[in-house]
Amino acid sequence: MAAIETFALGKTYLAGFLRKRPKIALKPLTLTVPEGEVFGYLGPNGAGKTTTLKLLMGLVFPSGGSAKILGRDWRDPAVRVNIGFLPEQPYFYDYLTASELLDYYAQLSGLAASQRRRRIGEMLARVGLPEAGHTQLRKFSKGMLQRVGIAQAIIHDPKLIFLDEPMSGLDPIGRREVRDLIQSLKDEGKTVFFSTHILSDAEALCDRVAVLHKGELRGIGVVQDLLARFSGNVEIIWDGAAALPALQALGCECHPTGETIRAVLAQDQLDAAIDAIRRAHGRLMSITPVRASLEDYFLEKLNDTPVEVAR
């Protein structure tokens, strides 16, 4: 069973005061996230990531399409027993202590009193706030609030967890801890759907990612496959401008800095390139394989217009 399935789920707002104009927040989106997967939802700010999450949480109503969460209609309140949600830059009732807040949310999720007491302690320890249970949230730092936010999202032991920008506002140690936490959730067999604009996080954690831009799904795929498509390039640096025309003839991009020239080219052209440099009596400085990153894929997807779906 898929954890999340959307069918042409879309949202168009009417924006403007007197003359309302339609503003597309999310073009009809169809995607499937299987259970047990950590799914990264990537896109620059304003791409429609939060809109997608709000649609799935039933906070806004779609202009069209539908969705299923854990096999049931996404609007069914019963489905939310098994959902945890961390909104972007969460703000919580600052007059409550961390324990009270978690207790409130656990109550809303239908946990019994005895269960709640046990889970609250566990969750606070899990997000690294074991001592902070009796502190009012108004005294919390941004990073601590983010941790409490994660704790409330998992207090009721949901099967599917939605995290909107879970790493934002955290210091490097905090980010590391949240990564570990998501990893441990995955190990427990949970499905985690998280949005981010920080690609290294996605690269490290996700089984699959989707790239969203201007409300449109630009690409989706398994992270390893995506990276493989971008490997195989090398960077070559040498001294001697005489070799420049020959390398340009090979069709590679050259960036001269005085006599020193840097070029990136495909692996299979490397021999030809070295030969050309030798013939021109150039002095080879270094040859480095280019490490492919999700960023390349990401940037490519932001630039090209046609939708490509690779599964």
């Binding site: 709000k54 949480m57 906070l59 939310r80 027993v81 909104p87 949310y105 809303l108 999720s109």
Partner: peptide, 14 residues
């Protein structure tokens, strides 16, 4: 405004 509602309505609360 403070979006505390999100975390409430994302639960089985009508």
């Amino acid at each position: 405004d403070k979006r505390t509602l999100y975390t409430v309505l994302a639960r089985p609360v009508r």
